[in-house]
Structures are given as C-alpha cells and as structure tokens.
Computed example of a mutant assay.
Amino acid sequence: MLSKLLPKKKRYAIVGEKAKKEVTVPDGLYIQCPKCKKSLYKQDLHASLGVCPGCQYYYPLSPKGRLSILVDKGSFKEMDADMASSNPLDFPDYDKKLSISQEKTEQNEAVLTGEAQIKGKKLIIGIMDSRFMMGSMGSVVGEKLTRAIERATEEKLPLVIFSASGGARMQEGIFSLMQMAKTSSALAKHDEAGLLFISVLTDPTTGGVTASFAMLGDIILAEPGALVGFAGPRVIEQTIKQKLPEGFQRAEFLLEHGMIDAVVPREQLRDILGQLLELHQKEETDNE
C-alpha cells in the first residue's frame, strides 16, 4: 500500500567497473524547457515562479499556483465552485473531454473566480486555466466571469481577470459566442459605476476572449512574450498574403503599438497590482 504513495523511479545503469550498481532517480525531478531545451530542476523552476532561468520562457500557471504567488495568504474565497458545463448541443465526446479536463486540473471549469486581497486591498479576481480544454470559453466560463463582474459592481470592488484562452469553445457553438456579449455588457455596467478593471493577458490570449473582456480593461497588462490576438499568425498571413512583422502578436509588439499599457515580469506583478489598487482606492477616497 505504501509503495503506491511513493514516486516511481527510473533506473540508470552505470557503465564501467561499477556496472552492477544502479542509481535511482525519482520521476519528474527535472523538466525540459520547451524553448531552449535545457533540463531544469523542478525546485529551481518553482523558485523562479515558473520562468526558465536560461531563456526566460514563461510556463503557464494553474489558477491555484497563480493565487499562491499573487494574493494575500488565506484571503481567497472561491465563488461558484460547483458550476460545471453540460452538453447543450449533444456534441460527440464532449462529456468525455470535460471529464478528462476536470480530472487533470482538479477543477470543474476553465476559470476560477472569487474574492481576495492583494497587499490588503480587497478585489474580485478571475483566473483562466489553459490546461482545461485550452482555456476555451463556454457557457459556464462566461457565466462565472459575468457573476464575478456583477459581484464586483454590487460591492463596488476593483476587478482583476487573468486571461489564458484559445478562444470560444466550439463544442457549444452559439452558446459560447454569446458569452462575448454577456461579459462585455457586465463590464460596461462595472465601468459606468466608476470601478477599476485590470486585465492581465497571459500566454495565450486569443479568439473570442481577446475580442471581448480581455481587451476591455481600464488598464491592460501582459506577461512577457504572451501571444495575444484574435486569429493566429498563420491564418492572417494566408488571408492577407503578406509576411507578418517579427514578434507580431506578442506582448512587446502590442506594447510598442499602443494596444496594452505595460509588460510586467511575473515576479513584479503582485507589487504592481498592489500599487494600482492602492492608487485607485486613494482616488476614490479623494473624490468622496
């Protein structure tokens, strides 16, 4: 029974006089960087907040992983945890794909929402998960985000949403596309109430998410190297029959062309958000 709880081990034979001896190394001790191909010690990667120390590649973070480095300890209170997708169009194998994603991510859907504090400042936060069907936006993702936005409006709280998505969820067809209008409408009411919405774009933020709430922030931040766009570069090149500029649709390119406000390294994001929330709170106090 105990053996099931221990990590599996790989055996590596030592060549030479000591060939009879073996060295055992636990599975998952190292991970290969998909960009520079170097082997990284997992503990070092954890210490660097999921950023490759060699090439600065940004590994995607799970919602809970992002919360652990972002919000004040013990401050997060999840909303709508039990909400899960159905199969409104009876799309083949959709139920199976949902079950696989739920098991893999230990979440019911591709977004986690709730109330939290950053540097003592209360806010409503939403974090998308690219591991769950590529962070695609279906009915439940749209509904959870809309409820989070409406909660922020009702309680007069700032809102921060971390986007990571491949776009609308094709298995839900028009129901998925309707979430673009629904989230945008809720944000319009939040804006009319004079409240702050900070949108943080992570890799990738594409499709219907980019075309709706992700680009409606009062302040739009992005992680370094994040892919941000509607259609993919290959589709655009095939459509316009032209070669795209170097770095097209990456966060730095968008910053240079005025599409976003800042590219913020992951280790600085908590401090930057804390400062922005404090400035907004001070402005509200001065205006009262």
Rank of each mutant, 00 (worst) to 15 (best):
S163N: 04
L187S: 01
Q238R: 12
M133T: 13
T153H: 15
V51S: 01
P233K: 11
T205F: 14
A181L: 15
K73M: 10
G120P: 01
P158Q: 06
L201P: 13
G208H: 13
C36Q: 11
R250I: 01
E267W: 10
S101E: 05
Y94L: 12
S62E: 05
A222R: 13
L6M: 07
E172C: 05
I219V: 13
T146P: 07
H46E: 15
P63V: 04
R131A: 01
K18R: 02
R266Y: 03
A193C: 09
G217R: 03
Q268L: 12
I198H: 06
L255M: 03
G126F: 08
S212Y: 15
V228K: 01
Q249E: 08
G142A: 10
V51M: 03
F230T: 01
D27S: 02
L201E: 15
P224H: 04
L40H: 09
L67V: 06
I260D: 00
V235Y: 14
A19D: 10
M1E: 14
I124K: 00
D261H: 10
T202E: 14
V141H: 03
G114R: 08
G74V: 09
Q102R: 08
C55R: 06
A186H: 11
S86R: 09
A262G: 03
E252Y: 14
L5E: 10
F175Y: 08
L49W: 10
G120T: 00
K96E: 15
F253S: 03
A81M: 09
I100E: 01
K122F: 01
V51N: 07
P92F: 11
C33A: 02
E103G: 00
V23A: 01
K64A: 01
F248T: 02
S185G: 05
K104V: 07
E17S: 02
F253I: 08
F175R: 08
L227E: 09
F175G: 06
K20D: 14
L145W: 04
S75L: 03
P60D: 00
